[in-house]
Structures are given as structure tokens and as C-alpha cells.
């Protein structure tokens, strides 16, 4: 029998071929990193933990783009649009339900993610079912993000009030925290919520890319026509990946607005739109693990630089992108691992 039965999905997530870290050293590293994050609050102030949560909260969006672009070959510059939609919709729903914050939080989450997914479904339907050429997709998605940013910028004034909540144009919109009963997710609680969300998104996507559907996504990155002629509806497969990536952006958007209690149209500006692409490209786009690590590190770098009054954060990130694309086009982490393996082999040889 040439084929073994597929292992169970969770097992496949940690042993499957489609990411680095599928052997004991990789698991040990993941375990250590996770342990570090779980223990970190014991040594850190609530303020520091909240900052670290901020470096983490873009990871779901980056992982979604890794699935879509790194695994599926579909480059989107518009992931921030779904981030913004989820954030704004959450703000409007939760902001109108301050009398019942628990229900407001839950409905806000559902509505926010639902809106992000629905926008992706409609927009993606037109892109993929019209079979536009692959190189146009980044442009169309970028236009979506910029149109949304422009539109949100026009929502100043009392005409743009939804119930009690004013969208606020470029002044932005205030947004309530997540709250269940009397428990408000802030400080350490928000930190742990973010860590848990990131872990779940990572494992969920590892299951996905190592499943049959993930294999199909990788196949259509390499040759869409060949994939179609094996009996797959390529448009549908692409649309599903697009919607998953959008909902993951939405998760980051929700974490962002409940972290800072605030959102402005700048989250979907040109500069912001390019950032997820940079994190994913620098990390190594077809490795979820690499993308997760690099997204954290680059967010930390940007935050530290800009809060130290450095205006060059974006330029430094951009230079890093160019350097990585020149010297390690497959991504920084896959290159480091390759170099590490080579060094080990050299040591063994001598």
C-alpha cells in the first residue's frame, strides 16, 4: 500500500511536512518559547505585559497572510482592510451595548469577524470567480484597503453616528474593552488572552496546511490549471483561503481595538497595508512558525523604535525587507536554519 492512513489532524499539525519545527528539537523550541510567554508576567509589570501583548496581536493577521500568500500563492496587500472592518464593527456593536457589556463583547466579536469574513467573501468572489490574473490581486486588495481608509476618513461629523457611537473620521473612535460579567480583559488578562489566541491560530493553521485541503492550496500555488484538472474547483479553494485569512486579520483587529480602546482610519493606510506583507516576507512566507516569530520581533522593533521618538521605524523595516529579499529571499528564519544545519554538518565532518 503506497499510502498510509492520514494521522489525526493534531498529530499532523506537528509532524506534517508543511512547516519547519516538525521534529523533537523544533517541538522543544516551541515549548520553550510558549513557556517563556506563559511565565513572563511573573517577572513583568502589567504595563510591560500589555506592551508584549501588542507585539503579539498582529500575529493572527500575519499567519493568515502566510496561508494565503506563502502557501496559496495569492498576495494580498489588503489584509488591514479586514482588520479595520472587524475593529470598527466591534466598536459600533459593543459601543452601543454598554448597558450589557458581556453581550456587547460577544456580539461585537461575532459581528466583527462576520463582517470581515463577509467582506472577504464578496470581494473575493468577484476576484476569484472572474479569474483575474494573479498579478492584479495585490493591486485590487490594496485598493480595497485604501478606499476603506479614505471612506473612514470621511466619517467625521454627526451624520456618521451609528446609534450612540460616532465613527469619528480621522479623529477615530473610542471602543470598550472585552468584558465577561465583571471581568474586564486588560493588563495580564489581556496578555494571556492574546497568547492563547495566537497559539490557537497557529495550531489551527498548522492543522490546515498539513491537511488535504492545505495540500491542494500548495498545489494550486504551483500550477492552478494542473490542480483544476485533478478535479478541484480552484476558485473555491482560493476563496476559502481568502476568507480564512480575512477572519484571521479580523481577530488581530479585535485584539487591537480592545487593547487600545481606540481605532482610526490610519490602520488601513498605505504604510500599514504594507506591514503584514513585510512581516511575512521577512520571516519566510511559507513557514507559519517563522512568520509568527518574525512578526513578534518586528512589531517589537517598530514599537520600541517609535516610542523612543525614532521616526525612521518604517524606513528601518523597509531596509530590512530589501536586505532579506536580496540575501535570503526564502525568508530570514528558513535561511538561519539552513545555515545552522550547514554549520552542524561541518562540525561533524571535522
Amino acid at each position: 500500500m503506497p499510502q498510509k492512513r492520514r494521522p489525526n489532524p493534531l498529530r499532523a499539525a506537528f509532524t506534517g511536512p508543511h512547516d519547519i519545527g516538525r521534529t523533537p528539537p523544533g517541538w522543544a523550541l516551541m515549548g520553550l518559547i510558549l513557556l517563556g510567554f506563559l511565565l513572563y508576567p511573573a517577572t513583568a509589570s502589567a504595563f510591560s505585559a500589555t506592551n508584549v501583548a501588542y507585539y503579539l496581536l498582529n500575529i493572527p493577521m500575519a499567519l493568515g497572510l502566510s496561508l494565503l500568500w506563502g502557501y496559496g500563492g495569492i498576495l494580498s496587500f489588503g489584509q488591514v482592510a479586514f482588520f479595520a472592518v472587524a475593529g470598527y464593527v466591534y466598536g459600533v456593536v459593543a459601543g452601543n451595548m454598554t448597558a450589557d457589556p458581556t453581550l456587547g463583547s460577544i456580539l461585537g466579536i461575532l459581528a466583527g469577524l462576520g463582517a470581515a469574513g463577509l467582506l472577504a467573501l464578496i470581494f473575493g468572489y468577484f476576484i476569484f470567480y472572474a479569474r483575474v490574473a494573479a498579478w492584479i490581486v495585490p493591486i485590487l486588495t490594496l485598493v480595497l484597503a485604501l478606499l476603506l481608509s479614505t471612506f473612514l476618513g470621511l466619517t467625521a461629523g454627526s451624520a456618521w453616528k451609528v446609534g450612540d457611537v460616532a465613527l469619528g473620521g480621522y479623529n477615530g473612535m473610542n471602543i470598550p474593552s472585552l468584558q465577561i460579567g465583571n471581568f474586564i480583559f486588560q493588563d495580564y488578562a489581556f496578555y494571556y488572552l492574546t497568547v492563547a489566541t495566537v497559539v490557537l491560530c497557529f495550531i489551527g493553521l498548522r492543522i490546515r496546511v498539513n491537511s488535504h485541503r492545505g495540500q491542494v492550496l500548495i498545489a494550486l500555488r504551483e500550477d492552478p490549471l494542473r490542480t483544476e484538472l485533478l478535479g478541484y474547483d480552484v476558485r473555491l479553494e482560493q476563496l476559502v483561503a481568502f476568507v480564512i485569512a480575512a477572519v484571521l486579520s479580523g481577530i488581530s483587529g479585535l485584539l487591537y481595538v480592545t487593547w487600545g480602546n481606540y481605532i482610526t482610519p490610519s490602520v488601513t493606510s498605505l504604510a500599514q497595508a504594507s506591514l503584514p506583507v513585510i512581516w511575512v516576507a521577512v520571516g519566510g512566507r511559507d513557514s507559519l512558525f517563522a512568520v509568527m516569530i518574525l512578526t513578534f520581533l518586528l512589531n517589537q522593533l517598530t514599537y520600541v523604535l517609535s516610542s523612543a521618538g525614532n521616526q525612521y521605524a518604517l524606513i528601518i523595516t523597509g531596509v530590512l525587507l530589501v536586505a532579506v529579499m536580496l540575501f535570503a529571499p526564502e525568508g530570514l528564519i528558513p535561511r538561519l536554519i539552513e545555515l545552522g544545519r550547514k554549520a552542524l554538518r561541518l562540525k561533524e565532518a571535522t
Binding site: P2, Q3, P17, H212, Q215, V216, I218, A219, E222, D223, L225, R226, T227, L230, G231, Y232
Partner: peptide, 17 residues
């Protein structure tokens, strides 16, 4: 037009739906 980035097994799995 086999998938060059994949193993034989992955090619065949993909073909198996």
C-alpha cells in the same frame, strides 16, 4: 506538469481528492 515542489506521495495524494 507534475508538482515539482512536492514528493511523489504528495502529488498522488493531491490527485486522489
Amino acid at each position: 506538469r507534475t508538482f515539482h515542489a512536492m514528493t511523489l506521495r504528495q502529488n498522488l495524494d493531491t490527485a486522489g481528492r
